[in-house]
């Protein structure tokens, strides 16, 4: 990695303890991670490993109880106020009473863009996710995959440098998922955004990422960070290559090791 660019996301000794009725739950313990500009970082691990929680900390939707976390050199709260990131949730979460264009306009309205600029941006991001011409449709008229693409367009509309995605394709079938993965890579290449991507699919993580963060539960922690040697240009059949299989193997080992010291 080059050292000249300032890190986009930097976590040092990050801790998060939830106080629940059953006592404290250690959701994150001593998480150290540096994400540079233009990285595609996947967080992989079983449920309860804190991968979503970490993403939510970056988005200032959760607040760490220890350690330090900066986003674009600011605190997560400041970064949120500066609208540094777009967040894509597991479900598309489109408003049923708004058209696709209306849904994409939602953040733009809140952020006070002019009417003309809103229209121009909606067109642009619809194009970007290959939904041009669907702006006037209502969400229920679109398939699940198209809805999720619309929600990505919504996150892209206001030009945040960072895109945080929490299992965005988790609810979709394998074939649609493959297509969207391919499109996401193209989108990433075109927009040069920094992407944080939560998944529990090993092939998805390896196929997409420049950096794979393997996590394990109880307490949620990082067990391995893998810098992918795969080239930036990735056709789908790269998944049959030797390097791909080696990385996937290392991820699997990391996941197993995380489970090993627990049982």
């Amino acid at each position: 990695m080059t050292t000249k660019a300032a890190p986009v996301i930097e976590a040092k000794g990050l801790d998060l303890v939830f106080q629940t009725a059953d006592g404290p739950v250690h959701a994150l313990r001593d998480v150290n991670l540096t994400v540079n500009k233009g990285d595609f970082v996947s967080f992989i691990g079983p449920s309860g490993c804190g991968k979503t929680t970490f993403l939510r900390c970056v988005a200032a939707l959760e607040h760490p109880t220890g350690g330090s976390l900066t986003v674009n050199g600011m605190t997560p709260d400041q970064a949120r106020q500066a609208r540094a990131y777009g967040y894509v949730f597991q479900a598309a979460g489109l408003y049923p009473w708004r058209t696709i264009a209306g849904n994409i306009r939602l953040p733009l309205e809140i952020m006070g863009f002019s009417k003309a600029e809103q229209a121009e941006r909606v067109e642009r991001v619809l194009d970007l996710v290959e939904l041009a011409g669907f702006g006037k449709k209502f969400p229920w008229q679109l398939s699940g995959g198209m809805q999720q693409r619309a929600s990505i367009a919504r996150a892209l509309a206001f030009d945040a440098d960072i895109l945080l995605m929490d299992e965005p394709f988790g609810a979709l079938d394998e074939i649609v998922r493959d297509r969207l993965n391919e499109e996401l890579l193209k989108l990433w290449a075109r927009t040069e955004k920094t992407i944080g991507f939560v998944t529990h699919s090993i092939p998805e993580a390896v196929y997409l990422s420049t950096k794979i963060v393997v996590m394990s539960p109880r307490p949620g922690r990082i067990t391995d960070i893998i810098d992918s040697p795969l080239p930036k240009e990735r056709p789908l059949d790269i998944r049959d290559s030797r390097e791909f299989i080696e990385i996937a193997h290392r991820v699997r080992e990391g996941l197993r090791a995380g489970h090993g010291d627990e049982v």
Partner: peptide
């Protein structure tokens, strides 16, 4: 989730 989404827009 819908409330969180609006929170991310501040």
């Amino acid at each position: 989730m819908q409330l969180d989404l609006l929170k991310t827009y501040n």
